[in-house]
Each structure stands twice: as C-alpha cells, then as structure tokens.
Nucleic acid binder design. Structure first.
Length: 419
RNA sequence: GGAGAGGUCGCAUAGCGGACUAGUGCAGAAGUCUUGAAAACUUCCGUGGCAGCAAUGUCACCGUGGGUUCGAAUCCCACCCUCUCCGCCA
C-alpha cells in the first residue's frame, strides 16, 4: 500500500505507474474520495468535540434538559458517523488496489517482450546426441507418474518416484544448508493462512483467482514468502534487529488459471510444488534494500553455478511485474530439450508496500518509528529445477548423473532407474 | 466437540458506568551526582488521523464488530484469539 500522502503529492506519477503495470485505477477519483473523507472527518470531529465538552459538564444526575440535548448530539453523530465510515470503507478499498511505483531503472513495457536480459552465465552444454525432455527421461527411468496421479487428482498432478524423490530432497536440503551458512534462520511455515496475509503481501486483491481456499476461509499459500513476510505482522522491531533474514521451506499451491494448455507435459508447471524461499526485512532505506536485492539474487545465482546450470537474469519490465513490486529480476535456466531459458527464480523488492499493509515497523536508534522494507527471492523450487537437472545432466543412454554438490545427499551418483 | 479462565500504552499489572486527560512497576532516552561504573534522584517516554508554516489544538484507539446510555475500558450480544481441564486423534 502506498502512503495516501504520497499519492496526494504525486498523483500523476502514481497514475502513470499503474498504467505502465497494466493496472486499471483512477487516481483522480481516489483523491476525490480522500477529499470527501477528510471533510466528513472534520465535521464529525467538531461534533464530537462539542459532545465531549458537554458530557464533561455533567456531574451526577443529569437534568431532563441535559438528557434531551445529549440525545440530539447522539442522533446527529450517528448520522454523520455512518456516512463517514461508508466513505472510509470505499477509500480503504480503493487504496488497496493502488499498485506500487516501479523503481527508476525498471524498463517500461507492455508484457514479457519488454523484459531486459541483464546477463547470461554458464556455457550451454553441447550434446553429441539429441537431448530428451525431462518427461521422457523421467518416464523411461520410471521416476515419475502422471497417469495415475491425474486419475486421482486431476490435471497437473504428479507422483515422483525412486531416486527422483531423493534428488528433490537433496536439492531442497542443499538449498537450506547454503542459506543457513549465509546466516538465514530456517523456518517451516503455515501453509494455510488468513486472507489478510495475502492482502498484506500484495497478492490480493489482484491474485485471488490463482489461490485455493478452504471451507473455513483460509487460503493455501502460493509461496512461503506470504507466511515469512507476514511473520512480523503488527510487530515493532528494533533497528538493531535488522536485517531479519529468513529462509522458509514449504509446499506451494497455485491454481494456474490463465495458463490452460501451457506446459502441460511433465512436471514443469504444476498445482503443487516445493520451494525454499528467502525473505529479508531491512531498514527503510532504498539504497540498502537495493544492495540486498542484488545480494539475494547472488545467493540464487551461486546455487545455480554450483549446480553447473547455465542461466540468464532478466530485469522485468513494468508490464510483467507484480502490483506491489518496485523492481524484479527473474532467473531463467537453460532447458536443452526446449532450447530455451525457462523461469526458475524470481527476486523482488517492495520498499514499504508490504509492510504498510502488514503494519510492520521498527524503532530507529533515535526513537523514530518507520516501516521496514521487504524483499524476497526463490532459493530453489522443485520439481521444476529437477526438470532442468534431468535435462542438463542426461547421458546418451538416458541415465542421469547427479550434480556433484548433491551427491553427498544421494544414494547413487548416477540415476539409472527408480530403484 | 464439552467445561472454565482471560485478552488494558514495548513487557507486567491496576481499573469493572461520570476527576480515565487510562494509574503503577519494569524496560528505554536525557540529565544530576561519580575518576569511571553501579545505585540514587530529576525529567521525558503508546499508536494513528485531521487542522496548522509552527508552537499547538483536536479526534479515535483498552482483542474485533454491533448494541444499551445524556455519558462505556467498565454493562449487554456476537465473533476472533490465548490459557487450563476433559474428550477425540497423527
């Protein structure tokens, strides 16, 4: 959420930002409501002031006249307060829909075609045979099964089997170990959360369609970012406690509406997957936040380099970033069978957009209270990254060599079957 | 699921219709004293909004939302959460 004062002072900037993000909002209308709200508020407050002063005069039993006057106040106030709360509700609802303003160095663009490649890292492996797709490899080795999964759980459901199960655990464990070494606190998190955590992190109202809800009203998280970022909701931290560095592991649930027919083969795009996620809360300083943004991108890059996967980093344009984000990088890993880089990581920073919604503050050394700044990035997400490993580490006979850094977590250095 | 207790300013507690402008203790900040520290003493110290250049004024907030009343932290109703016990259960 943006500070209403900021919107008042920079209406055209905010309007333009929303337009660049392809989000339909009317700032002029919002400011009209804001104006109306403030005027009503002043009226109500003046009335209350009068009422309070009147009430204070009464000591002991009031006279009939006093009671009559009191009732007049009550009636007038009730009417005005009613109008005020209606306007307030409208204002809050609108405010929740205003997206964050992108950082200055974010390219303006309509959609993914406007993203900018920042760098390419790692040599793409040259095969002297035709590399197979991850689903063909996994099927041949009996490492996964969608046929039975779909039978009992519908599209995009999957079973992993045998060594692929261990490979998944290995990747996740490796990622957690690495982040622990970077002084992050490991967390398991609630997988079902209240809606306010989704509004707080800025997934709602925009992304409601892509989330599952329980019959009791909780929402299944699409990423541990939601629980981790909301962890300090309503807290007032001390400056010395910052930065807060958290690494969470959780399943992630996504309805994938709007992607029907996309990536239907294998386990590239699924409704349920696992992810290790990094979240950092920093002091309210964009320079420091941007340093962390690069650092967190670096952690993810480091892991990919250790896994010897080639990747590229994209700076996302305004039209392809989330409503709450100031700036976002995606990392895409090379998939030989598709001859394409595909998204595996996403790193964003928000300034106080999330922390305002979550009411997450800290006390500075000189006693000021400020909103913390938030960031997040993927560490690893499986099974998508497993697909990349299978494809990049395949041998001509269809077996898979386990990446060196993962071997200590595995039973076999080469995957030849599900056993 | 059943029964009971409770949610008050960072923490801990008091308050149970009109001097609550929410008291007190702890923690925190500044200062006095001291070679330095501790102790003691003095002062400051919740959050948010509105008006104002500002000093300041004012409104709201005692889990949340309704209600009763001239007046609600205090009474009533609903909900949420926490704790204790019982039941069920991985």
């Amino acid at each position: 959420m943006l500070d209403i004062k900021f919107i008042r002072e920079n209406p055209s900037l905010v309007q333009k930002a929303a337009k660049n993000k392809n989000i339909d909002v009317n700032i002029d209308h919002l400011l009209e409501i804001d104006q109306k709200y403030r005027q009503l508020q002043q009226e109500v407050q003046a009335l209350r002031e009068e009422r309070n002063a009147f009430t204070k005069e009464i000591q002991g039993k009031p006279t009939d006249e006093q009671i009559g006057k009191g009732k007049d106040f009550k009636e007038k106030l009730e009417k005005e307060e009613h109008a005020l709360s209606a306007v307030k509700e409208e204002l809050d609802g609108q405010l929740l829909k205003i997206p964050n303003v992108p950082a200055d160095d974010v390219p303006v663009g309509k959609d993914e075609s406007g993203n900018k490649e920042v760098k390419k890292v790692g040599d793409i492996r040259q095969f002297d045979f035709t590399p197979k797709s991850h689903e063909d490899l996994a099927t041949a080795l009996d490492l996964y099964d969608t046929k039975h999964a779909v039978n009992i759980a519908g599209t995009r459901a999957y079973f992993l089997k045998g060594d692929l199960v261990f490979l998944e655990q290995a990747v996740l464990q490796y990622a957690l170990d690495y982040m622990r070494a970077q002084d992050f606190t490991a967390m398991t998190v609630p997988w079902m959360v209240h809606k306010n955590a989704l509004y707080g992190t800025g997934y709602f109202p925009w992304g409601e369609e892509d989330h599952y809800t329980t019959q009791d009203g909780q929402v299944l998280i699409g990423t541990a970012e939601v629980s981790l970022t909301a962890y300090h909701k309503d807290d007032i931290l001390q400056e010395k406690d910052l930065p807060v560095k958290l690494v969470g592991i959780s399943p992630c649930f996504r309805r994938e509406v709007g992607s029907y027919g996309k990536d239907t083969k294998g386990f590239f795009r699924v409704h349920q997957f696992s992810k290790v996620e990094q979240v950092v809360l920093t002091v309210a300083d964009e320079t420091i936040t941007r340093e962390w943004h690069e650092k967190m991108l670096g952690y993810a890059e480091h892991l990919l380099q250790e896994l010897k996967l080639s990747y590229r980093v994209l700076l996302m344009c305004t039209g392809d970033m989330g409503a709450g984000q100031r700036k976002k990088y995606d990392i895409e890993v090379w998939f030989p069978s598709q001859k394409k880089y595909r998204e595996t990581h996403s790193a964003s920073y928000f300034n106080d957009f999330q922390s305002r919604r979550l009411n997450m503050k800290y006390k500075t050394k000189n006693g000021e209270t400020k909103y913390v700044y938030t960031l997040n990035n993927t560490v690893v997400a499986t099974p998508r990254l497993l697909a990349a490993i299978l494809e990049n580490y395949q041998e001509e006979d269809g077996s898979i060599i386990v990446p060196e850094v993962l071997q200590k977590y595995m039973h076999n250095p080469v995957i030849k079957s599900s056993k």
